[in-house]
């Protein structure tokens, strides 16, 4: 159900005073709960809850041909299916824009940070490389799916183990796992979305809050201040000062989120 205008107005008034319906301050995340290895069949997986938002992310590995423009690198594919089960706003059918965007936001955050060392996933140049598939499914949408998906993706990657690979047949033996992990760098991309509602800047909106925000900026960056990917969403302009403020806000949020999820990254 869409948030009513009356509620929306009230939310904005609250935000203006630095308050939120659930008692959080503007830069505070809801409680983040993480569960690793939730799927026995996936090579890696994680389930992330941020408040009532619940997302499951799975990593599958397969051997396939490399892309012609990167013959010595593994492939990365990030897909999202916005399950109708998770919200009355999602409908079944081919992916629409929100699903495509979510996948691409996570893809670029991970790809540009060079978190996955794709060149180490080459088996035979120009012929065989490992492909990493990251698939994202929300189980319950109460806002901020992007950040939940981002956390889920990096943790699922961390947990992933290679399946057995038969060099003679050149095929993957699914169901038999090795101890080998995906080669990952230290540049962990934290994907955080900062929103602006009226004059207020907030992170981690609930669905209700998300309905009244005017503009959002999703930034993939490291805990030490580097930015790898950035995308502004929604049709509302931002002044250069506001953009600056969002960059600072987001950097702080990355540090905070990192400190909360750090222990799951080992």
């Amino acid at each position: 159900m869409e948030t009513s205008k009356l509620t929306g107005k009230r939310i904005k008034e609250y935000l203006f005073q630095g308050k939120r319906f659930d008692g959080r301050n503007l830069e505070e995340f809801r409680k983040i709960t993480i569960e690793k290895n939730v799927s026995k069949k996936a090579e890696g997986s994680a389930r992330v809850k941020i408040g009532n938002t619940d997302v499951i992310v799975g990593v599958k590995l397969d051997v396939s041909e490399p892309y012609p423009d990167s013959p010595n690198k593994g492939n990365l594919m990030v897909t999202t299916e916005l399950l109708p089960l998770s919200s009355d706003r999602f409908e079944s059918g081919p992916p629409r824009f929100p699903a495509i965007e979510l996948g691409r936001l996570i893809d670029r955050g991970i790809r540009e940070s060079k978190f996955i060392e794709l060149e180490k996933l080459c088996i035979k140049e120009g012929e065989k490389v490992w492909s990493v598939f990251i698939d994202i499914y929300p189980l319950n949408n109460d806002g901020n799916l992007i950040d939940a998906a981002g956390i889920g993706a990096i943790i699922a990657l961390k947990t992933a183990r290679f399946p057995k690979y038969d060099e003679e047949t050149g095929r993957v033996v699914y169901g038999e796992f090795t101890d080998k992990k995906i080669p990952l760098s230290k540049d962990i991309p934290l994907i955080i979305t900062t929103h602006k509602a009226g004059e207020s800047i907030i992170v981690d909106p609930t669905l209700e809050e998300e309905d009244v925000t005017d503009v959002r900026v999703t930034i993939g960056g490291s805990v030490n201040g580097l930015i790898f990917s950035l995308q502004k969403g929604n049709s509302k302009e931002l002044t250069i000062e506001e953009m600056s403020k969002i960059l600072d806000f987001s950097e702080k949020a990355r540090k905070k989120v990192f400190s909360e999820i750090e222990r799951y990254l080992n």
């Binding site: 940070s113 201040g225 990917s229 950035l230 502004k232 002044t239």
Partner: peptide, 24 residues
């Protein structure tokens, strides 16, 4: 916009916030 409001921004790569502000 001619007044300097940002209606669109994207980024791919590796950059510090200070450099990004200069880029804007």
């Amino acid at each position: 916009t001619p007044r300097g409001e940002i209606t669109h921004i994207q980024l791919d790569g590796k950059i510090t916030s200070q450099e990004l502000k200069e880029a804007i």
